[in-house]
C-alpha cells in the first residue's frame, strides 16, 4: 500500500508537469500558416531575385513544394533574402523559419541549427577561364588565386581539407567571384556544381568546368534546432517530391540544359533530433 501511495504522489507530481509537454522553444513550422523562407537573391538557377522582386530557381521551387506539402496544412510562403554569412543567425533569431539556399549540411553548422533533408546532393567542382588550360584538378590550384565567399565552406574544402596552398581572394557573393574571374582578378571559383552551372550558363564559352568533383555537398533545409516535428514533416514532403516525380522535373527544368549528371532519387536524410 505504501508503494502504491507513493506512486499516487509521483503521479500527482507528474500532473503538474503535464502542461509542459510540446515542442519546447517556439512554435513548430508544422503549426504555422505562413513560412518565412530564407533564399539567396543572386544565384542563377538556384535562387535569384527578379527585377519585379519575385524569386526564381530550383531552391525557390523546392521551398514552394515543401510549404505546399506540409502534413498538417499547406502554407503560404514569404521569401526573404538571406546572406550566406547570416544563414545560421537568421534561423537562430527567428528572422526566418527555414533556409533553403544551397545550404550544405556540415558538422559545424549542425551545432547551431538543424537540417531537414538533404533535398539534393551536389558536388563541388571548379570553374576557370576557358583559356586557362593549366588547371586539371583541384591540386593544380596551388599558387593560384581562389575565390572565397564569406560564410561558404567551399574554398575551405580546397585550402583546409585538401591542404592546397591557393591564394584566397575574398568576395561577398558568387556573382562577385564570377565578375572577378572573367575580369582576371582571380583564377578559379570552386563550389557546388549546381551553383557553378547557373553562372556558367550566363557566361557562355568564356569559362569552363574542370570536371573533377571533390566532394558531396548535401543541401539541407535549415531549421531551428528544437523543431523536430517540423523537420520530420519537411522530410516527408521531400520524400513525396521525389516519389511523385516533381524533383526530377525541377532538376531537369533548371539544370537539364547544362549537361550536369543529375540524381533523381531521394537522398539519404540526415535525420531529425
Amino acid at each position: 500500500m505504501r508503494v502504491a501511495l507513493s506512486r499516487v504522489g509521483a503521479a500527482l507530481a507528474l500532473l503538474l508537469t503535464v502542461g509542459g509537454c510540446g515542442t519546447g522553444g517556439g512554435t513548430s513550422v508544422a503549426d504555422k500558416d505562413t513560412l518565412v523562407i530564407g533564399v539567396s537573391k543572386d544565384q542563377p538557377g538556384l535562387g535569384k531575385q527578379q527585377p519585379d522582386g519575385t524569386f526564381q530557381g530550383f531552391d525557390v521551387d523546392v521551398a514552394r513544394y515543401i510549404a505546399a506539402h506540409m502534413e498538417k496544412k499547406p502554407k503560404k510562403v514569404d521569401f526573404k533574402v538571406t546572406q550566406y554569412s547570416q544563414r545560421e543567425s537568421s534561423i537562430q533569431t527567428g528572422k526566418v523559419d527555414l533556409v533553403i539556399s544551397s545550404y550544405s549540411i556540415t558538422p559545424e553548422r549542425k551545432t547551431k541549427v538543424s537540417f531537414a533533408g538533404p533535398y539534393y546532393v551536389a558536388h563541388q567542382d571548379t570553374l576557370v577561364r576557358a583559356a586557362d588550360t593549366g588547371i586539371k584538378n583541384v591540386r593544380d590550384l596551388a599558387g593560384r588565386r581562389l575565390c572565397a565567399v564569406t560564410g561558404s565552406v567551399s574554398w575551405q574544402r580546397v585550402t583546409v581539407e585538401r591542404g592546397v596552398a591557393a591564394h584566397v581572394v575574398k568576395a561577398p557573393t558568387y556573382g562577385d567571384c564570377m565578375t572577378k574571374l572573367t575580369g582576371n582578378s582571380l583564377d578559379a571559383v570552386s563550389t557546388d556544381d549546381l551553383i557553378l552551372a547557373g553562372f556558367a550558363a550566363q557566361e557562355g564559352r568564356s569559362v569552363r568546368f574542370v570536371n573533377a568533383p571533390i566532394s558531396d555537398e548535401r543541401y539541407g533545409v535549415g531549421i531551428r534546432q528544437d523543431d523536430i516535428t517540423g523537420c520530420e514533416d519537411i522530410n516527408k514532403a521531400i520524400t513525396e517530391m521525389y516519389l511523385d516525380g516533381t524533383a526530377a522535373k525541377l532538376l531537369q527544368r533548371w539544370f537539364g540544359a547544362t549537361g550536369l549528371h543529375l540524381t533523381t532519387t531521394v537522398p539519404q536524410f540526415e535525420g531529425c533530433g
Binding site: 546532393v121 522530410n235 520524400t239 531521394v266 537522398p267 539519404q268
Partner: peptide, 9 residues
C-alpha cells in the same frame, strides 16, 4: 544514390 538512401530513410 538510390538503394541505401531509401533503406536509411
Amino acid at each position: 544514390l538510390d538503394v541505401l538512401p531509401k533503406a536509411y530513410n
